[in-house]
Amino acid sequence: MGGLSIYFEEEGLATTGISLIRIHTERTRPPRALWVPFELGRPLGTPNDPAFQQRVMRAALELLNASDGPVLVDYPEDAPAAAAGAAESAMEGMACPVDFPQSPDKTAPTSQIGMALMKEIDALAPWYELAVAKRCRTTVGISGLPVNDAGMYLAGFLEDQAMRSPRDSLPAGQVLKFAYEDLKAYYTEAITIQPAFNTSKRVEDWLFNETVLGAALWRLRAICRASSDEFLQFLGRNSIVPDRQINPPN
């Protein structure tokens, strides 16, 4: 982010903005930056809180009044979601309210995982539709595949890595990446309509440890890491399962 800021200033445009990783901003030293103590992925702090987001924006815009720099200022407020996170431990152990079909054992044949995945996608459909209706939008769609087709493609790939790309314009590995990101979005949009799933960690723990999709993604990661294909190796290294699931903090 700091590098972009310097390019724009060199082009004659004044810049200000948000810093999430303070050490990167300290190294690149852009003219103006507001460091915020928020979760990665939430540079304005918390969703659906216009007043809080406005305060953050105003603080960053006020840096434009500085007479010289570089200016790196720490934003003093934590995101309201942090308070919700503090209650996270109280919610641990709460059952998922979605009525899922029986999941296969983790050692089950891949074909069973595929069938269970289709049932799980169907079971989540009412909650997903409710979420879309409430938010008037969905972020599912980067693969260009209907969500059931994305699930079928993922399940098929687990059995046969030589599967043909379902989209002529994109290589199979890239469609695979977009397909499982669509599935993740479908699941997480659906579950976050439930009040108990109010932190990203809670949602992520559920997705990767309590769902058939999670089991499929762990299996996909193992397949990709063992593959000789360079792109699949890349996916397996750091683009399927988040680091904090692979190496949970102590």
Binding site: G41, R42, N48, R135, T188, T192, V203, D243
Partner: peptide, 10 residues
């Protein structure tokens, strides 16, 4: 995959 997307989704 190492940042939250649920905020963006909402």
């Amino acid at each position: 995959v190492n940042f939250d997307r649920t905020g963006f989704q909402q």
